[in-house]
């Protein structure tokens, strides 16, 4: 019998992924994300600047072909190679089409997914309500705040890509209250479907431990002389569910929360 928070089938798999230009950027990156029973999950990817986080992000989203290796995601009952349009992406600057209102942006996305305009409208209104965006629906992206743009961008991607969402630096330059707002948004997405998987890239260790079920550290190996070996890869994986740090509103008050934050902080200089 399956239990809540138990990990099951693979929903996303990165195997032997390498990206090189004139030098290796990513080298043999392997990530396996399994479905968590009872709810969606959040995976945080922590990496110092310049480690190839964007390339990994683009490869997972199907926007970039790796030099070698494969990204596969669960589609139906089997893992298939990822293609652009299968994984939602919310970039740091929360891009929207500037030439149309928020509602029209969402309608464009919903119609691309298929179905009638009426069905699309129902889904859009439901998500606008869920994210408290009703008031901004008829505004142009230039007229809404950064937080509202981010929410609109999340909804847009959710309308098109039901299961996987990549969020690039969603906590960057946010004060504590705004961060909590974003935690709740991520939680809302995770709670909508057991198969929902949100991958968040961030530098913010505390936010990562607060919101994530798994934390991945991307960084470089060092040779015997302490020199950086070109090409970053996953250096460490923290299963926060196993540590009793699966997300809940009071997770950040637990003593082991701070232990985990400190443990990850200690890892950071080595990346």
């Amino acid at each position: 019998m399956t239990q809540l928070n138990e990990r099951r089938e693979i929903v996303l798999e990165v195997s032997g992924l390498s990206v090189s230009y004139d030098r290796p950027i990513l080298r043999d990156v392997n990530i396996t994300i399994r479905d968590v029973v009872g709810r969606g999950q959040v995976v945080a990817l922590l990496a110092p600047s310049g480690t190839g986080k964007t390339q990994l992000f683009n490869c997972i989203a199907g926007l970039q072909q790796p030099s070698s290796g494969l990204v596969r995601i669960l589609a139906g009952k089997e893992l298939v190679p990822v293609q652009a349009g299968m994984v939602g992406v919310v970039p740091q600057n929360s891009l929207l089409f500037e030439d149309r209102t928020v509602y029209a942006n969402l309608m464009t996305a919903a119609l691309l997914k298929g179905g009638s305009r009426k069905e699309a409208r129902t889904r859009i209104l439901e998500l606008l309500e869920l994210f408290g965006m009703n008031d901004a629906a008829l505004q142009y992206p230039q007229q809404i705040s950064g937080g509202q743009r981010q929410r609109a961008s999340i909804i847009q991607q959710m309308l098109c890509n039901s299961r996987f969402l990549l969020m690039d630096e969603p906590f960057a330059s946010l004060d504590l209250l705004k961060k909590i707002e974003v935690y709740h948004q991520i939680e809302k997405i995770a709670l909508r479907d057991e198969l929902n998987t949100i991958i968040v890239t961030t530098h913010d260790i505390e936010s990562a431990v607060t919101i994530a079920d798994t934390v991945l550290l991307l960084g470089h190996d060092h040779d015997a002389g302490g020199n950086i070996v070109p090409g970053a890869r996953i250096q460490k994986e923290f299963d926060l569910i196993e540590c009793g740090l699966a997300w809940h509103p009071e997770v950040a008050t637990l003593p082991m929360f701070f232990d985990k934050v400190n443990e990850i902080k200690a890892w950071f200089p080595r990346l």
Binding site: N58, A61, L63, A84, G85, M86, V87, G88, V89, P91, N93, L95, L96, F97, E98, D99, T108, A109, L112, K113, Q156, Q157, C160, N161
Partner: peptide, 28 residues
């Protein structure tokens, strides 16, 4: 490039990407 990426993540085909990003996106 991000603008093209946005259109691609929404599942637009190449022609639609050009229409939305290049034609409509630069109209003003």
């Amino acid at each position: 490039q991000e603008r093209y990426n946005l259109a691609r993540t929404l599942g637009m085909n190449r022609l639609r990407v050009v229409w939305e990003v290049v034609v409509r996106g630069t109209l003003s």
